[in-house]
Each structure stands twice: as structure tokens, then as C-alpha cells.
Design a binder for these strands. Sequence first.
DNA 1: GGTGTAAGCGGACTTTACCCCGTTTAGATT
DNA 2: AATCTAAACGGGGTAAAGTCCGCTTACACC
Lengths: 210, 210
Amino acid sequence: MDRPVLPVGEPHAERADAVRNRRHLLATARDMLADEGADTLTMDALAQRAGLGKGTVFRRFGTRAGIFHALLDDDERAFQEQVLSGPPPLGPGAPPLDRLIAYGRARIGFLIEHREIARAALDGSQPIPAGSQTPLSQTHIRILLGQMPLGPADLDVLAVQLTAALDGPLLLYLSASDLTGAAPQTGARPQTGERIARGWQDLVQRVCRT
Amino acid sequence: MDRPVLPVGEPHAERADAVRNRRHLLATARDMLADEGADTLTMDALAQRAGLGKGTVFRRFGTRAGIFHALLDDDERAFQEQVLSGPPPLGPGAPPLDRLIAYGRARIGFLIEHREIARAALDGSQPIPAGSQTPLSQTHIRILLGQMPLGPADLDVLAVQLTAALDGPLLLYLSASDLTGAAPQTGARPQTGERIARGWQDLVQRVCRT
DNA sequence: GGTGTAAGCGGACTTTACCCCGTTTAGATT
DNA sequence: AATCTAAACGGGGTAAAGTCCGCTTACACC
């Protein structure tokens, strides 16, 4: 007899209850975040509020930072789609340099908008290489660089450098920023984001001019 | 009568026993590091091995990462001196671009040499802006940039970007690297450091060409 | 030398992240 | 429906960071 018929490509990646619990935990985490902020979001508290065991929370997310990482990934999906198949210059179709500039600008906007989560996501005691949090960023930059005439250059290293250069000022901003008091409005400091965006554009143009 | 004679500039920054204890703790920490590595270096263990109370350890260093930071600062003093008043091109006297390249190379070498401590120093759950660990790096880069003809540019942002671009690949290397097993020899991978150094030189030359 | 006081010290206590492992259950197979 | 097994669950247990506060001590001044 053959292997069982029909559906399975993979045996079964995740059980239904597991999926349900993951979603429920994520939703609960968002509620807590809205209610009280990131600090009081402890693993115990989350488990209790979700009506699940602490073990389950750890099984799903591995670590506290993992929760925030998952939340961020969730929000990032839409953003990624814009990059991969949205309209130019962010999406494909524009010259690589323009796309690079647009990408930086978009990422800056995205992270500033989600700053509380973003900040909490990078806490952990694990190594925190700027840019390995989002291999996507680095990969995308790497690809765009490959499409440009840069002469002899170590594109892999350059991609890491640029990813870090993009994230660096952001991290500085995120950590210095007034995440303490209730921010009066969402776009609290348009200027800072704009300044970083201009800096990015300038840097990239300098690096890529022939 | 004048102010009391002789020494004091400040009332008394630190009591003698405090100084003694700090030094003793630092030395003990180095011993433990050499004996067992960074992981087993807990605050309790350090206090016990040093024959002091845990409260004292926290009073002196504030946080676990603080200990490693202090160790690194200690090692860094010599390096800083080279930068501030050593021979060119690292020290003053050479053209700023050359100094920038030399600085990057030197910093890469320094951090790779002290990788275990460096890695442990950046753990904490506090914000970890690349480059704010060492404001010195950023400041130095900023000053050198100011001495170059770069046209219109936001030098402060550019300095942050370059600092991050210098640290990024290093962090990646430090975290990926085989810090686990006993490294056979100190200069385990000359190539990686060299590759990063070349990347730095290339980046800086691109950014600064007129 | 005596004295006052700010700084330092110690170590019990609290809080959390994270581990472990016995128990339960989804869901495939018959 | 009955059975079987790997995955998921629960929640008590552990370890380590960081806090607190009453006691001790260096040292400036007399």
C-alpha cells in the first residue's frame, strides 16, 4: 500500500487548537498593550488573561520578545506586500535607486508608527544585530543593490551596512523617544522621521552615485 | 582662609572603600570570565566569589550589563588614547578620510579581540541603539566628518548612520561567531575581520568622495 | 582623639522569564 | 466507534536580576 492518499503536503504543520490559541494569545496581547502598555505585559499576566497556562504561552512564542516579534510580523505583512508587489516606486517597476529610497522611507514610517511594539520586540538578552531582526530588510536591500551598477563592491557586506545605517537612527529615536507619557497624537514628531528619511536618501545617493 | 588645602576638586566623588571594591569586583569578574565564560557570571556568583554582598555589586554597576560595560571601558582606554593622540593615520595629523578608515579598522580589530566581553556588554533589556553603547565612536566620526568637504548634509544623522554601519556587521559577526566552544586561537578568523574592514573602507570612500 | 553624617554595605525579598514533565487531546488510521 | 500517537496543555519549580532598608563605616571637621 502507498502512503495515505490525498491532502497532506506536510504531515500537519500545526494542530487546530494550537492555531486557535496562538491567535487568541495575540489578540489578548494587543488588548493588554492597548490597556496598559508593554511593561505590564508579563507572561503570567498574558496567560491568565487569556485563560491559558503559562506553559502554552512559552510553547507558542518561546520568549517574551517573541510575542512582540509575532505582533510586529503580523502588522508587517501588509507592508511586505507593498514592497513585493505594490505600485512603484516602493514596489517593482521603478529604478532600483528610487526603490531603495522609497523602501527606507516606508520602513521608517512603519517602525515609527509601531514604535511601542517595535521597541518591546528588540528587548531580549539574545544577540541583537541591527538588521537580523528583519532579514527581510537586508535581503531586499541586497537585491536592489544587485540591480545597480556599483563597480567592484562586496554587496553582502554593503547590504548589512546599509540595513544597519537605516535602523541605527531609528533605534536611537525609538529608545530616546517619549514612549513614557501618553503621546498626545500619533504623529507626535513628524520632523524626526522626516529628518531620518532625508538622511537615508542622502546616504543612499552618495553610496550609489556612479 | 581659603578652601582646605591641596587635593580635592570635588568634595569627594567616591569613597576609598568603594574604589577598592570596584577594582576588586572588576578583577574578580575577569577571573571568572577566564575560568568559565560569560554565561555563568551571575551577580550572585560574582558577589560571593568576591566576598561581598550582592547589594554592593548592584550599587557599583547598576546592572549585569554594566559590569561588562565597565570591563570594556577599561580595555578601551588605551585604544582611545591612540585615537586622540597617537600617531597618524589613527591619531591626529592625517587627512580626515584616512583617519576615518583607520578608525574603523582599529575599532573592528578591538571589538573582535574583545568579542566575548563586547557581546555580553550589549545584552540588557534596555534600549540598545547601535552606537549609543559607545558615544565616543559616534562623536569621533562626527568630528572627522566635519573636517571634510561633503557639501550639504545632515552631519549628525550621517554620523549616526556610519556608526551603525560600522557596528552592524560586527554585531552580526559577534553573535553568529563561535563563542561557544573554546576558540583554538585568538585570531580565529582573520578573514572576516578583514572583509568587514574592507567593506568599511569602501563605504566611507563612497560616501565621502566629492 | 572625638563626633556627625553621608556614603557604602549586606543580604533577605520580590518579580519574572523560562524549564520540566505528567496529563490531556486532536485527528489520523482501522 | 475504537484506538493510537504525537502534539499540545498546565502550572508548579528554578534561577537570576534588581529592590529595599536597617546597620556599618570612612572621613571631614572640630
